[in-house]
């Protein structure tokens, strides 16, 4: 049972990571910096609860603010470049953050042990949950409350004019500019929202794993972050959730019995999925079919 609860936690946190890239992808920008914001959120929240004994929710709020502020600061220079250059620029930022934490040591004596981040050895003993008597189920509920809140907000944003504007910029920047959209403001805002969500996700991640180190926030995590929304499709937020369940639940955990061959199959399946469903698992066609099914059922009930 604990295995499945653990998996549900992972899916929740990775959904937040994927959603942070989803916002940015809507504006047509591919950012590999999301793992960097995630790392900042993780270390900041961990230090606040472990070293300063802050309540978790407060620490997560600070993580969100810092993640967002960093994303906004990175957004202005990074978004001056486009396409592959943006990928390179954001990847460089992500690596810079990782290397910062690789070299970052700030430890405080607490009884017999030293607490706090310790360079390459990482940041151990983030024991907020056990110390405050949270069981695995409590943690699962906590994570998913946040995931549902974030998804609801993004869903609402998608339906509003803001969502349409983000997509307009993603589709054709020149046309968007010429219809009066301030594309720099839109892109930096999307990046900032993404940074906020990644910051929260990282903060939660630090607390359920209890031990973080720089290597976890490398290019692989950044790639996962953009793989989720791309694989799931940009029609709505559920595509990202579906892709996280598909990758984390089915591929990574479900194929564990294959040993090292799993990674090979994993890559192959993503290529296959992208070829069969170029617009993502949940594309406009699937949504149309679902809508038709729902409305047909509604009619039947009405009749």
């Amino acid at each position: 049972m604990d295995f499945y609860l653990g998996l549900i936690q992972i899916i929740g946190v990775h959904t937040l990571l994927g959603l942070s890239a989803y916002c940015v992808l809507l504006t047509g920008q591919v950012s590999l910096a999301q793992a960097g914001f995630f790392a900042i959120g993780a270390y900041v929240a961990g230090m606040l609860t472990v070293l300063l004994h802050w309540p978790l929710v407060l620490a997560l709020i600070v993580s969100a603010i810092l993640g967002g502020a960093m994303a906004c600061a990175v957004g202005f220079p990074a978004l001056r470049v486009k396409g592959l250059m943006l990928v390179v620029a954001t990847a460089a930022f992500g690596e810079a953050v990782r290397l910062f934490f690789f070299n970052f040591t700030y430890q405080v004596q607490s009884g017999a042990i030293l607490l706090g981040p310790h360079g390459g050895e990482g940041f151990r003993q983030i024991r907020y949950f056990p110390e405050h008597g949270w069981g695995t189920l409590d943690v699962v509920l906590f994570i998913w409350t946040i995931v549902v809140l974030v998804m609801a907000m993004l869903w609402w944003m998608d339906r509003s004019r803001v969502g349409a504007v983000l997509r307009a910029v993603g589709e054709d920047e020149l046309a968007a500019q010429s219809t009066g959209i301030n594309i720099t403001a839109v892109k930096v805002s999307a990046m900032t929202i993404g940074g906020i969500i990644a910051g929260i996700g990282g903060g939660i991640f630090a607390h359920y794993t209890t031990h973080i180190e720089h290597i976890q926030f490398g290019i692989v995590l950044a790639t996962f972050a953009i793989a989720y929304p791309i694989l799931g499709g940009l029609s709505n937020v559920f595509g990202t959730l579906l892709a996280v369940i598909f990758i984390q639940g089915l591929l990574i955990e479900g194929l564990r019995f294959l040993g090292d061959w799993r990674n090979l199959l994993f890559g192959g399946l993503i290529v296959l999925a992208m070829n069969i469903r170029p617009r993502g698992l949940l594309d406009a066609g699937v949504l149309m079919t679902l809508k038709r099914l729902v409305s047909r059922n509604g009619e039947r009930k009405g009749a």
Partner: peptide, 10 residues
């Protein structure tokens, strides 16, 4: 625009 530039996915 001379060559139409709509937001095709909207």
């Amino acid at each position: 625009f001379q060559n139409i530039r709509l937001f095709g996915q909207l």
